[in-house]
Amino acid sequence: MRRLRAAKDKIARYLMLGIAIFTILFLLVIGLSLFFKALPIMRAKNLWVLLSSANWKPFKGDFGFLPFILSTFYVSLIAIIIALPFSILTSIYLNSYASKNVRRFFEPVVDLLSGIPPIIYGVWGTLTIVPLIANKIAPRFVEFSTGYTVLAGGIVLAVMIIPLLISITLEVFRSIPKEMTDASLSMGATKWQTVKKVILRKSISGIIAATVLALSRAFGETMAVLMVCGNITQLPHSIFDACYPLPALIANNYGEMLSMPNYESALMFSAFLLFIIVVLFNGISRFTLNQIERRYQFS
């Protein structure tokens, strides 16, 4: 009886250890298999050419990823530029101004926004943002735009990353000891002054980390962006041009025409590229955020 119990305990322990090791290795396995899948194209072409050439003609064997990389970058950048002020202002409001009831009301709002599937954002984007750009915004700046543009992708993405930004900045704000803000308030500073001088200054590293995290989320977002940004292989010259981000490239082409030489490998290369960037960005920002959390936990 006692032996049986001890044996069960031991088996469970080793199984769990196995699962834990598997989880850590899983990341490595994904990275490595994407790498090996991308290897043929990296062997066939100069890495620099792959990254810097704008010449994308898979039929002729030309694989220049620059249009896709730039598209991803532009769309994400616009998303961050739009989302950041909204998120920070809302977080400050929720953290320092809003009453308990307002905060309680807003939690599910943020939850819901982050829970809505990308495809729904895409539907919403095509129904509202795209026509808005085509009919109202673009005509003021350019002669013609279909609405399926860098800007549309950026706006839709911005809405999608706002909940992430809000929840992380809120966490960062909460990690600031109350004594610190109280000290500022008791010296006669207004709330806004306290926010400026204490809260924002103290949480600058956390906000940067949150931004990097949101950026990496934006890089990888696929369906919603794919539905609103036009998907034309070109170097976008303005925010009213169509673009073709990396995830959309994979989603639209993977699984088809795989008989073309190096085509599959090229698509895997873009997946690998995404993987590396996202892991890097995520790693850095998560590390920073963990440090912040730890700093305040033990102080």
Binding site: I30, S33, G220, Y254, V278, N290
Partner: peptide, 28 residues
């Protein structure tokens, strides 16, 4: 250290875009 390593990898796995999982899944 081990548990923070696991948590860290979970954070990173959490951040990997679904399209990458899709591509990896298909390759697998």
């Amino acid at each position: 250290v081990f548990s923070s390593l696991i948590r860290f990898s979970l954070d990173i796995l959490f951040g990997i875009p679904s399209i990458v999982y899709g591509a990896f899944g298909f390759a697998l």
